[in-house]
Design a protein around this nucleic acid. Structure first.
Lengths: 260, 260
DNA sequence: AAGTGGTCTAGACCACTTT
DNA sequence: AAGTGGTCTAGACCACTTC
């Protein structure tokens, strides 16, 4: 007699009768709840920044105990998909706060605190995706992609050049003007305008010598050693939605990492 | 009427009577339990690899409910201090398994899987700590420190050179022979022979040009761009116990990082 | 005062491992 | 069968925020 929770306004099996679980396609109740809640996030029922229903409401909706809902939310919170605020409620995570910037940008000044970097969009173009980019973004080679080239300034000094590749199908109305006028982290724009929040990312770092093009943008001598950072970012459902190739100048900054 | 748990064989206040907590020096009960358990880890009462008492035993010992002990262990587990094994028990985390190697070593081959790297100890010396090293290790300048220089080989190719600085007071009997004869991750040796498990670490990465000394050890041309990795590792109580300055060759390897 | 998340308990049963 | 961690419930009270 397994417990299986079915979509929101439907009927779960043997919820209030007995605890535990077993048999076909077993998974703990709280995992099922978590999956349902992730659907609500993915479908846009609950949007970034919004308040989600309270724990008691959710317990009623899913016909489980509050403790089970709590455990589901605990995991969503650990995954950075939601944020709890005591006394207020649980909110869908966003990238709008200035501090959220540094969740994915790990470049820090060697001394002192990190100020908010400034951006300059160099160009935005739409083209048919090169095979390699398409492979990473999990789309067909030749499908439309958006390519953004920009420079980031730390305290007025050009420090990062990057090329950002996005699937054209998702980022339809994305233009240079739209990017230029938007204030705050780029990922903030992505989640509000294109309904695709970045949930996690992987990076590959190498030390290389700058090429002449990047050197010109960064105002450094060709042949300077720089950090090459290739990032792949994912949304809900672990779908890759961004490939970013960046060059970081590490003369007076460093890539900071916490291991645990 | 706050709940305060006192050391193991002592008497807590108002434990089985009422839940909740408040008033002077407030902290949740499970946090107090966690702190007590960390003392047991730190003091060596529970050594790496060993089985710790079961949840029910701990609940009796601390005079709290099993659920409260569980929550304390949940956090210790999340902090990688302890590992749960269903049906068997909870064990103190170790660095002995080969796979544990890559918790702190994030260098991966560009293609294919990571084999176990081989080490060659170049030299081990004891000296009076340079001011900068002493500052990082939180000891007095001039105090004894151990400096280990070694090269790591990936598939026979020299890929990492590093200088490892350790407080002499803790690593008393550490010799080149001891290091050379030890099999497995160096951190495994540290925790079994010197009772100092590495719990977390921070790293600062920069792209630099190899100096001639490192180039010779790595068998690459002077002036090649390489990754400079400076690591500070911490034991229980966030005490720094290692400063490691490494050079990674990233021609056919990369530093892999997961952001979330 | 009412609502929200956070803590704590007590008891039940399940899944896994060992004896 | 016995012991361990893992899940689930129901109910109580606490801490924080808002009305």
């Amino acid at each position: 007699m397994n417990q299986t929770v079915t979509p929101p306004p439907a009927t779960p099996q043997a919820a209030s009768s007995g605890p535990g679980a077993s048999s076909p396609t077993f998974s703990p109740l709280y995992q099922q709840i978590k999956a349902l809640m992730m659907q609500s996030l993915q479908s846009g029922e609950w949007k970034p920044g919004e308040l989600i229903p309270s724990e008691v409401e959710l317990a009623l909706r899913y016909k489980v105990s509050q403790g089970t809902v709590r455990k589901a939310i605990d995991e969503l919170s650990a995954d950075n998909l939601v944020v709890r605020r005591q006394g207020k409620g649980t909110f869908v995570a966003t990238h709008h706060e200035a501090r959220a910037q540094f969740r994915f940008l790990k470049l820090m000044p060697d001394s002192g605190d990190a100020h908010q970097p400034e951006n300059r969009i160099v160009e935005v173009k739409r083209l048919r995706g090169p095979a390699e980019v398409a492979r990473v973004l999990d789309i067909k080679a030749g499908d439309s992609v958006v390519c953004i080239k920009r420079v980031q300034f730390f305290d007025g000094v050009p420090t990062i050049v990057e090329e950002i590749w996005l699937p054209g199908a998702i980022f339809k109305g994305l233009t240079a003007e739209r990017l230029a006028e938007y204030k705050g982290p780029m990922y903030g724009l992505f989640e509000t305008e294109f309904a695709t929040p970045m949930v996690r990312a992987t990076e590959k770092l190498k030390a290389v010598l700058v090429d002449s093009s990047a050197a010109a943008h960064l105002n450094i001598k060709p042949g300077t050693p720089v950090l090459s950072v290739e990032r792949v970012a994912y949304t809900y459902g672990d779908r890759p939605v961004e490939l970013r190739r960046a060059i970081y100048v590490t003369a007076s900054h460093h890539y900071h990492n916490e291991l645990s």
